[in-house]
Design a protein around this nucleic acid. Structure first.
Length: 420
DNA sequence: TCTGGGGTCCTAGGACCC
DNA sequence: TCTGGGGTCCTAGGACCC
């Protein structure tokens, strides 16, 4: 059996931990740049707000109902997430951190000594006591069914936060009541396809014959079908090493001048290189992209991308930034109002063993590695971007993101710790 | 005025090999 | 009229996830 632990309205719940007066009030958390709603409480949903709504379009609702609005603070949410994960790991042997707000537990063996529902009730209570974050838990023979269970646990208070699907009868009942589009693995396209074949519920899909499903769907569809029928086949083992690393942002204000774009690209390249080193990898290629504001039909549109491949794979901030700025120079066109830029690192491999190159002229690899070690050490101790390249700029610039309602970093910065 | 960011996996088809 | 068989690797694009 598997358990899925899902934090309820996670970003909002974290904000509520530090603003206890908000219990029972509508709360939303915005995307970067204070653009769209990315997380909202049930109370906010009841006001008519939806995930994905651009905030400026729903200002009326927000003001009318007094909805509490927060800018996103990923550093804070990530810190809370790791606290929850560590509580889980102390409670259950096999924990798989699936996303910032969800973890799977492999409960194999626990059924001999525990009632699984009671076990998860205890885990849930421990998380509540230690972090004040409410979670919903689904327990079932497959991960897809566990996900469904957690949704029921969230929706119906009678489950007291834990819904276990451990009999054929419960499985069929759950599949009958659950909505098809909420099934893990069924997106917009698959939903359309299922509708076309007259399939209206997860149960109807699960009851199709194996040969029919194999004839009409490819591997992911077949996997979902198997999982719904109680046969585990989705392996979500944590990917500790990313195969691509991307940092991109929409700008607070549009920019046209090359120096501002260079500052943004250099800053994103630095962030990418930092992530790359933190997972002990090097990259073979860096890609830079820039684009204008696609929502402004009245302005000339332009977007482009360019890549550079290194002779010898690297994780050196200076090398990666320099290459990224060359790419930018290749695609920059003046007199365009740019809204977004980004840096992508690909062809990521472990830093050792490093494939060298016959015609490589870089003789300072060792010194550079030491320099990066010092750079990372300082930024780890004194905060992200304390030490950075001059080209990234020094003052608040037009391309910086907007975040007018950001909470302090209560959990990670001693200067911003909560005062009681 | 204002519209997010960061990933993975799978498949088909092209290009190439013997 | 007839035009082999069996592979690998790479990439773009689609679909999905949070």
């Amino acid at each position: 059996m598997y358990a899925l632990i899902d934090c309820n309205s996670f970003f909002c719940s974290v904000e509520k931990v530090f603003h206890p007066g908000l219990e029972g009030k509508p709360v939303v958390v915005l995307s970067n740049n204070d653009g769209c709603i990315v997380a909202l409480t049930p109370e906010a949903k009841a006001c008519g707000l939806h995930r994905g709504d651009p905030i400026f379009k729903v200002e009326g609702i927000v003001n009318h109902f007094g909805v509490h609005v927060f800018s996103t603070n990923m550093q804070l949410y990530a810190a809370m997430s790791s606290r929850i994960t560590s509580i889980l790991r102390k409670s259950v042997l096999h924990v798989e951190n699936y996303s910032i707000d969800e973890s799977f537990c492999d409960l194999q063996g626990y059924e001999r000594n525990y009632n699984l529902t009671e076990l998860m009730w205890n885990v849930r209570e421990r998380i509540r006591l230690c972090t004040d974050i409410p979670v919903s838990v689904g327990v079932a023979p497959t991960k897809t069914l566990a996900k469904i269970g957690s949704k029921f646990a969230k929706k119906y208070s009678g489950y007291k936060g834990v819904c276990t699907i451990d009999t054929e009868e419960k499985r069929r009942k759950a599949l009958e009541l659950f909505s098809l589009e909420d099934v893990w693995g069924i997106g917009r396209k698959t939903l359309e396809k299922l509708c076309y074949y007259g399939i209206g519920s997860p149960l109807a899909f699960a009851e199709k014959s194996e040969s029919w499903v194999k004839g009409h769907f490819t591997k992911p569809g077949v996997q979902t079908w198997l999982e719904l029928n109680g046969i585990p086949c989705i392996d979500t083992t944590e990917v500790a090493i990313n195969k691509t690393i991307c940092t991109s942002r929409s700008f607070g204000d549009m920019v046209s001048e090359l120096p501002a774009l260079r500052a943004s690209v250099a800053s994103f390249a630095g962030s990418c290189a930092n992530k790359l080193r933190s997972q002990g990898s090097v990259c073979g290629t860096v890609t830079v992209f820039i684009s204008s504001n696609r929502f402004r039909e009245d302005l000339p549109q332009y977007s482009n991308a360019a890549s550079y491949s290194f002779l010898v794979s690297t994780s050196d901030t200076l090398e990666i930034t320099e290459a990224a700025l060359h790419c930018l120079a290749d695609i920059y066109v003046p007199n365009i109002k740019y809204k977004k830029s980004g840096v992508i690192l690909t062809e990521i491999t472990p830093e050792a063993p490093l494939q060298l190159h016959l015609f490589d002229t870089n003789t300072r690899r060792k010194e550079r590695k030491e320099l990066m070690r010092v750079l990372d050490g300082i930024n780890h101790r004194y905060g992200v971007k304390t030490l950075r390249l001059a080209v990234e700029g020094t003052s608040r610039q037009a391309w910086h993101v907007k975040c007018e309602h950001r909470s302090p970093n209560y959990l990670t910065n001693i200067d911003e710790i909560l005062t009681v």
